[in-house]
Design a protein around this nucleic acid. Structure first.
Lengths: 374, 374
DNA sequence: TTGAAAGCGATACCAG
DNA sequence: CTGGTATCGCTTTCAA
């Protein structure tokens, strides 16, 4: 059926030139006359040339090096992102990737240095969390000019020339949160509070907008308050919440769009409001578990850090190997965690680490284990 | 850093034999003395030999053939599973897979024939939906004996020797449904109905059990009724529901664990109960969309057919190529679709088909498009 | 600037 | 039963 794919040799033959020249032309290596180069490029196109990845890997076995620039785990989120990346890297058929983790301790501290180091070390690609997109933008531009593709995780850096972005869909998150809030509260009236890191972050503004829109459309009995910005500072979140709780007696629910839910919960507890509030949080980390189990948190929107890491890696790897990848903008739908399915997600998280360990074990040669597929 | 990986040549040299013999020994091809075979196997193990996939693919470029045996799309579920499989196959680096779709028209009609045909055609692996696990079990066994690995999608075939299973986690599904039902209904008392295909299907029994357990634990005010079995027959579902609705005046909610939610909704409407019932359904298909939008369906548990297809394919491919894969039992958490995030999911579904078309376009050679990563 | 040729690691075939 | 070798498509080096 399908005719055999075009090879370098085919192009060379068709043009009466040599494989070497064709190769050089296709990779715009020095030492090709502009004429031959044009002809080769032309012919490659008409013949529909697609490089054979296996052959390429086999002959030049230089490894790809990918730098992963992320935040140190304040919570488990970034640990899981890294796990996802490791997993995806481990399940690649062509084992041609080396990963360098450059982890910085806090938001905006060491972020630029890490990026600079990655570029200086000539990595082939970068996966990064642009905690302050404006600051990182120029760095990403610089990387792009040096032909180092950059994939952003969790937060986008618009207008930076980054290759791609993997994040949770903000619209889906905000909307489902609002929908749940509305259904949980039923017909009664009340006010809803929402906390964000900073409305200057696109993602957070979008979540707010989606939440607001869905609430307004379907649950007009609920009134959304102005967003509380906590800037990931515990005291700030706590104090602003306390103040709000006192000022707003008809408060019915709170939606925490970031991981910083603990201060909010503490404030609610201290204000003796925990029982009366319907609280929806974001992500899943150890301190949140008892809050969910006790019912203090009605539901949490899980942002699937592991999946984000896996997809980011695949996107970057596919680009590095094939020169193009499917879609460079992935917006994942979040998962919903409540009391009933909490254990399922906790189990999943712990399975990750277990599996990591098993991967170090020596593997059997293929002939042996085809046994019963047990 | 890492020392260079062991090759066939290394083994041959260490044993003072030839590459040819080593190769034969590792693949237990005919024509090796038991002695050499043992020595080779031994040495391969001690040297930690791992075959080089790229080299293997390059030299013997025989394609893998995979048969995909699924139900014709009564709804869009199986179409999406197939799309997921196609997607995963398309994004494989080593383009060495050919997919043969064997689609049968209805539950249990043509299922065995399709399986038999796949085996007869000597495919390298099978992805199947075992609509009647007991019936298919012996066929799967037969395939396994012929060294054809089988991956089940959506429903398991226990004790069949299948290589793996990809499905939605029944516990997570049933539990989240119960949790939502409980929260939606609030403190008031009432009965809850649940419909399944047949309690003899493991997955359905498990969903029921999970639903029951979560409901009992957290929402004792709600009383769960005996399950309604519809056997995917429209009239059966409709009639049983009508009867139930009349018999049970304090009915507060219904959980439909299968795709067969339309008859239930019709029954509710005809009984003038639609407004008063909280209905949670399963999956997402065109006819359900207006029901969600109107609020008749409070939420639907989306079983992510595309993801199931992708993962099933990857599992099978990884096994065929590497002889082993990560985990052979994947239980996915479902997605939750409500009015607010409905559009997000609909958009996703339509993107699939759009993207499929774009894949046919000729691709640029790699040198060209590294441009601005736009 | 170009052409020729030596690998990369595994497969498969042919002669011993 | 075993050893040797051409081959897959590409990269890279060395001559010309």
């Amino acid at each position: 059926m399908g005719k055999p794919p075009t090879t370098l040799r085919d192009i060379a033959k068709a043009l009466g030139t040599s494989i070497g020249s064709v190769h050089r032309a296709l990779h715009d290596n020095p030492g090709v006359s502009p004429l031959t180069k044009d002809r080769v490029l032309q012919m490659a196109r008409t013949l529909g040339y697609r490089p054979n990845i296996a052959a390429r890997y086999l002959s030049s076995k230089k490894n790809l090096r990918i730098s992963v620039n992320t935040l140190q785990g304040t919570t488990s989120f970034w640990d899981e992102v890294r796990t996802g990346i490791r997993e995806a890297a481990g399940s690649i058929l062509l084992e041609n990737v080396e990963i360098e983790f450059r982890t910085y301790p806090r938001l905006g501290e060491g972020e630029e240095e890490a990026f600079e180091a990655a570029i200086r070390n000539q990595v082939d690609g970068i996966i990064t969390f642009p905690s302050r997109p404006q600051v990182l933008r120029s760095w990403i531009r610089r990387a792009s000019r040096a032909r180092i593709p950059v994939v952003c995780v969790a937060t986008d850096a618009p207008g930076s020339g980054r290759l791609g972005i993997v994040a949770i869909d903000t619209l889906a998150s905000g909307s489902i949160a609002a929908d749940l809030m509305g259904r949980f509260l039923g017909p009664r009236e009340g006010s809803i509070a929402i906390t964000v890191f900073d409305m200057a972050i696109t993602e957070h503004a979008e979540k707010y907008a989606a939440f607001e829109s869905t609430l307004k459309t379907f649950y007009p009995n609920l009134h959304l308050l102005k967003p509380i910005e906590d800037h990931d500072v515990e005291a700030e979140g706590y104090n602003k919440c306390r103040r709000l709780f006192e000022k707003c007696p008809n408060l019915a629910g709170v939606y925490v769009t970031t991981e910083a839910s603990i201060p909010v919960l503490k404030a609610a507890r201290d204000a003796k409001l925990l029982e009366r509030l319907t609280i929806i949080t974001t992500d899943l980390f150890p301190d949140l578990v008892p809050q969910i189990r006790s019912g203090a948190v009605a539901a949490t929107i899980y942002q699937r850090p592991r999946a984000q890491g896996q997809i980011a890696f695949r996107m970057l790897h596919e680009f590095l190997v094939e020169g193009a990848s499917r879609s460079h903008q992935v917006a994942l739908p979040p998962h919903l965690v409540m009391r009933g399915n909490l254990d399922f997600f906790l189990q999943r998280q712990s399975q990750e680490s277990t599996r990591e360990k098993r991967e170090d074990q020596p593997q059997q040669p293929p002939g042996e284990l085809a046994g019963d597929f047990a």
